[in-house]
C-alpha cells in the first residue's frame, strides 16, 4: 500500500509555515515564509515549496489542516484547527513529557497546558497588545539599529540591565529613545528589554501554572538571550525545538493525520 502523506499550514501574522509528514509521523519537509498581505497566496506558496522539498505532488497529500490567524483562508485545507491546539500537539510530539507550552509568536503569545496525550487543558493568551511578542522585539531592534539575530546574543544578558518599565510597545520605545539619549549602553537596554518580555510571559505562565516540562515554540524561541532569562525566571530548563517556528504547522499536520485515520476507520 502506498505511503500516506499529511500537511499542516500555519498562516501567522508575520510568517507562514508548512510541514509535510508521512504516516510514520516523520517530517519530510518544513518551510517558513513571510506571510505578506495575502495569507491565501502565502499558504499556497509555502505548500508548493514543501511539496518540492518532499518530492511530492499536492494530490499525494491525504489530508491537510490549516491553522494560525489565516486558517480560514486556505482553500485546499481539509480541516482547520486553532494554533493553540496545534502548538500543544506539536510540542507534545517533539517532547512527550511537555506539560506547559509557551508560544511566543509574531503578534501574540500564549501559554498552553496540555495533558499526557497532548490535549489542551487550559490556555492563556495575550492578543490585545504587542507586549511580550515578536513584534515587540522587532520594533526595539529597529530602534536600537540591531539585527533581530543580534538580540539573540547571550552576551547581551550577562552584564547589567536597565529596567524597562513600560510593557506597552509604544511607550517602551519612547523609554528606549530616552535611554539612548542618556548614552545608556545598548547592551544594558537590550538586557532590560529581554527581561521586560520575560516578565510579560511569566505573568501568563503564572495564571495557568507550570505543569511538567516546559516547551517554548514560536519564532521568539530562537532568541537565546531570552531563553536564558526565561529559564532563570521559571527556575527550570526549557525544551527548545530545533525549528520552533514550525511547531504549530507540525501540530496541524499531526491533527490532519488523526482526522484522516478517524474518518477512514469509521
Amino acid at each position: 500500500m502506498a505511503d500516506l502523506f499529511f500537511g499542516g499550514i500555519d498562516v501567522g501574522s508575520l510568517s507562514t509555515e508548512a510541514v509535510i509528514i508521512n504516516s510514520e509521523e516523520q517530517v519530510l519537509a518544513e518551510v517558513v515564509l513571510i506571510t505578506g498581505v495575502n495569507g491565501s497566496e502565502a499558504a499556497q506558496k509555502a505548500l508548493n515549496q514543501a511539496l518540492e522539498l518532499a518530492e511530492l505532488a499536492q494530490s499525494q497529500i491525504a489530508a491537510l489542516t490549516s491553522t494560525g490567524y489565516g486558517r480560514a483562508s486556505v482553500p485546499f485545507a481539509t480541516g482547520k484547527t486553532t494554533e493553540i491546539s496545534c502548538h500543544g500537539v506539536g510540542a507534545h510530539h517533539l517532547f512527550p513529557s511537555t506539560g506547559t507550552v509557551i508560544d511566543v509568536g509574531g503578534q501574540d503569545s500564549k501559554v498552553i497546558q496540555i495533558d499526557d496525550r497532548g490535549h489542551m487543558l487550559d490556555f492563556s493568551m495575550n492578543d490585545k497588545c504587542a507586549a511580550g511578542t515578536g513584534r515587540f522585539l522587532e520594533v526595539m531592534a529597529d530602534r536600537l539599529e540591531l539585527e533581530l539575530d543580534e538580540l539573540s546574543n547571550p552576551a547581551y544578558i550577562t552584564g547589567p540591565s536597565t529596567p524597562i518599565s513600560s510593557t506597552c510597545t509604544v511607550f517602551a520605545e519612547s523609554e528606549v529613545i530616552s535611554l539612548l539619549a542618556k548614552d545608556t549602553p545598548r547592551e544594558q537596554i537590550v538586557n532590560g528589554l529581554q527581561r521586560s518580555i520575560v516578565n510579560r510571559i511569566w505573568s501568563m505562565v503564572v495564571s495557568i501554572g507550570i505543569h511538567g516540562e516546559v516547551t517554548i515554540t514560536g519564532g521568539v524561541a530562537k532568541n537565546q538571550g531570552l531563553i536564558k532569562v526565561l529559564e532563570e525566571k521559571l527556575g527550570q530548563k526549557l525544551n527548545v525545538p530545533k525549528n520552533p517556528q514550525t511547531v504549530g504547522a507540525l501540530g496541524a499536520a499531526l491533527i490532519a493525520k488523526r482526522h484522516h485515520s478517524d474518518s477512514t476507520s469509521t
Binding site: Y69, I84, M125, D127
Partner: peptide
Amino acid sequence: PVLNLETELQPGLSGQEKTRIEAFLEM
C-alpha cells in the same frame, strides 16, 4: 473549563475572539 472573554461592548467578532472561542471549544 473556563473561558474569559473581555468586551468593551463593541459589535463584531474579532479574529482573536474567534480563536479564543474555537480553542475553548476544541478543549
